[in-house]
Design a protein around this nucleic acid. Structure first.
Length: 729
DNA sequence: TAAGTGTGCGTTTTT
DNA sequence: CGCACACTTA
């Protein structure tokens, strides 16, 4: 068996010199090391590294994961569905001599025949399978415009998108097409955004509190942190990480399978804690409802639950949304599909668009079967395929088609393009991650001679893959924006201030209270809990003893700020003043590098000024975090023109660039280590690779380093996906 | 009981 | 590199 890991690279890496810690020599080890451990450490340190760049021509490196019986079954079932779909598609292909109305003729000039059909087929269920770059958004935009022009009331149209960015773009383009008065009344947004808005607006009918706050993932992890001590958790295996627990819970709900099953599937090391996890899940659920908190999954499932249980509400919704369009349908999960089905049940004017080859959100419960089985659900549905690609030049299309052909299933689309053939995709081999970064940036500089910064993107598998490239770009003073990874919202001081707003919005948001209390010097978990008990007791006097304690002045200042900020009639601007006046001095006390953070807070002030209610500010902020960052702060649209884009592949979905770089194509990085042993996960990684490459219009550069630091070890095997497209590079 | 230090461990992807 | 936990110190 070939050696899987090469030892630590000690030379030539100017970015991240590996400093070998000698901790074991200093601190006495309690348990004696096993011979295996010692040997492992020895070989990591002293066995000379392999310096040559590996070639991918030899596929003995790659062990294909074994398909489980379930997977085999699923695939053969899907294949049957696809064959049926294909047959049905061929039968339904109409002769194109239908007579067009004047209005339709207008749209015929703007769209190709398939797009036109998709746009003017307004009544009844409709499935549009659209390949990458085939003008999916264009079709949606024109369809909405066509409907409005045909006299359908904008209020009766619901457009569900995957990201806020997509919904904003569609709305903007509809505006440009037919003017804003009509288009503005259209309901467009993400599933989560719409669920949030409707739950708040209809709170009386639904009998819920409209002041609930929304917990993002770190917030949920905080809740777990607060409640995990209520049950005894003996150390039986690996440490239970709060954020992983949250992942398990969320996935369990998205897939609608038990916590234990989910654990087995995504975090089998935690199976020893199955019982504890189940208990925690119950506590977690109770905690959220007690404190008027909803997480992302609650927004969807509560919405769906009310639709099911409240007939009045349901019929109101069905009456309002007579025409429904869903973008990126391949990435919907069971609950989202159910919501759509319920909403469309009465009028049946439901149109879904998607591409099964771009389904990359299985980790969030997405089932691309949703798109393939749509015609089974809606028997009378019309089926349209849009296959012409307007984005990429033929050499790139050939490559992306090849990637798809390696996939085991899929509703195969033969994308084709009229564009003239351009440069073939290039492969860059580097000796180390630092070397890779500098080669990539060399190419970027070369590209910049002919194209604009905003036409270039670097797309990688995981957030932390961007660090080397970032360092290199910073060094050469090339401005860039980072999408994905650590967002603005997750920065500590932003979370603090938002927590303050959350308290104002929802007094019961104990997570927010706790966070702010723990910030105070002299207050730790125990005191914080006591204070919280006092606050929740509903008796103000109970707080008095804490003011008298040695760090009481801090607490007093905090409580005073809270009461001032909660006074009725304050604008968000006033509130910001009060909060900052309290928080900034405190921040300077506990942090050293305040100036950067103050800039962030200024941005926060600007954003908040646009809102009139605390609730909408806080929920929008959680659902639609500003994530464009440059030197760690959001940038204006103007600056974006001058910057190149660094993004995770996931965040790059639906976007396109003249030139695209896909670095770190090592087995274990892309495809990710986690996916190597599981057949379906590996298939999803391949689709992800497909999404990455199909973002490129003219030029595509793939690259990999010989080694990459990876928890002290380095993997040096080129990605198996490169092997699959070998001949095209 | 808060807060600081050390250490071991495991690194997706997002609304 | 960040975190959960163990242990120490004040």
């Amino acid at each position: 068996m070939p050696k899987k890991y090469t030892p630590i690279d000690e030379d030539g890496n100017d970015i991240e010199p590996p400093i070998k810690k000698k901790k074991s020599a200093k601190s006495p080890q309690k348990k004696p090391e096993s011979i295996d451990d010692i040997l492992k450490r020895f070989s990591n340190t002293f066995i000379p590294q392999e310096e040559s760049i590996r070639e991918y021509s030899n596929d003995s490196h790659y062990t294909q994961p074994i398909q489980t019986d379930d997977e085999k079954e699923r695939i053969s079932a899907l294949k049957k569905i696809i064959t049926k779909l294909e047959r049905r598609y061929l039968n339904s292909k109409k002769e194109d001599n239908q007579k067009l109305s004047t209005l339709e003729k207008k749209y015929a000039k703007l769209l190709n025949p398939a797009q036109l059909q998709a746009a003017i087929t307004v009544d009844g269920p409709l499935l549009v399978v659209a390949g990458a770059g085939s003008g999916k958004t264009r079709t949606l935009v024109h369809r909405a415009a066509y409907m409005l022009e045909r006299g359908i009331n904008a209020k009766n149209i619901l457009l569900l998108t995957f990201t806020r960015r997509a919904s904003k773009e569609i709305q903007l383009r509809v505006n440009q097409l037919i003017g804003s008065e009509k288009a503005d009344a259209l309901t467009a947004g993400t599933f989560h955004g719409i669920a949030n808005a409707i739950l708040r607006r209809q709170h009386t009918l639904l009998d819920i509190s409209p002041s609930f706050t929304i917990a993002d993932k770190p917030d949920s992890a905080d809740i777990i942190r607060l409640i995990r001590h209520r049950i005894k958790i003996e150390k039986k295996g690996p440490i239970l990480k709060n954020s992983k627990i949250v992942d398990i819970f969320s996935r369990s709900r998205n897939l609608e399978i038990s916590v234990e099953k989910t654990t087995e599937r995504i975090q089998p090391e935690y199976l020893v804690y199955a019982e504890e996890l189940q208990q925690l899940f119950t506590l977690f659920t109770e905690y959220k409802s007690e404190h008027n908190i909803m997480d992302y999954d609650d927004l969807l499932s509560e919405f769906q639950r009310h639709l099911e249980e409240n007939r009045l509400f349901c019929s109101q919704m069905q009456k309002q949304f007579q025409y429904i369009m869903v973008d990126e349908f391949q990435d919907t999960n069971i609950i989202q599909k159910r919501i759509v089905n319920t909403l469309a049940a009465k009028h049946k004017n439901i149109m879904v668009v998607g591409d099964d080859a771009q389904s990359i959100y299985a980790f969030r419960g997405a089932v691309f079967e949703n798109i393939l089985t749509f015609p089974e659900q809606w028997k009378e549905c019309t089926l349209i395929k849009i296959e012409q690609n307007y984005r990429s030049q033929p050499a790139i299309i050939e490559l992306t088609n090849t990637i798809l052909n390696a996939a085991s299933i899929g509703y195969h689309k033969k994308l084709f393009s009229d564009k003239k053939i351009g440069d073939s995709p290039k492969l860059i081999k580097a000796s180390s991650a630092g070397d890779e970064a500098s080669r990539v940036v060399n190419m970027i500089e070369k590209e910049l001679e002919t194209i604009k910064p905003k036409d270039i993107a670097v797309l990688y598998r995981s957030g932390y893959h961007s660090t080397h490239i970032q360092t290199e770009l910073l060094r050469r003073a090339i401005p860039f924006v980072v999408y994905g990874g650590i967002t603005f919202t997750e920065r500590r001081h932003i979370k603090d201030v938002i927590s303050f707003f959350k308290i104002v919005a929802n007094k019961r948001d104990i997570v927010a209270w706790n966070r702010l209390l723990m910030l105070l010097p002299g207050i730790g978990p125990v005191t914080a809990r006591k204070i919280l008990n006092a606050i929740q007791s509903g008796n103000g006097e109970a707080l008095r003893p804490f003011f008298a304690a040695k760090q009481g002045d801090y607490l007093l200042a905090f409580i005073e700020a809270v009461t001032t900020a909660t006074r009725p009639g304050l604008s968000l601007k006033d509130m910001c003043e009060i909060i900052f006046a309290y928080y900034i001095p405190l921040l300077s006390e506990i942090e050293t590098d305040v100036s950067d953070r103050l800039k962030d807070l200024e941005i926060l002030r600007e954003i908040s000024a646009k809102y009139r209610s605390v609730n909408s500010f806080v929920s929008d902020f959680t659902l639609d975090a500003p994530q464009k960052m440059r030197n760690n702060s959001p940038v204006s649209d103007r600056q974006i023109e001058e910057t190149i884009t660094l993004s995770t592949v996931h965040s790059a979905k639906g976007l396109e660039w003249h030139t695209v770089f896909v670095p770190h194509l090592l087995d274990g990085m892309f495809p990710s280590n986690r996916a190597l042993k599981n057949f379906s996960n590996l298939e999803e990684e391949r689709r992800l690779f497909y999404v990455a490459c199909s973002r490129a219009k003219e030029r595509l550069f793939l690259s990999y380093p010989a080694t990459h630091f990876f928890g002290g070890r380095a993997s040096g095997i080129p990605s198996r996906f490169l092997h699959e497209i070998d001949s095209l590079l």
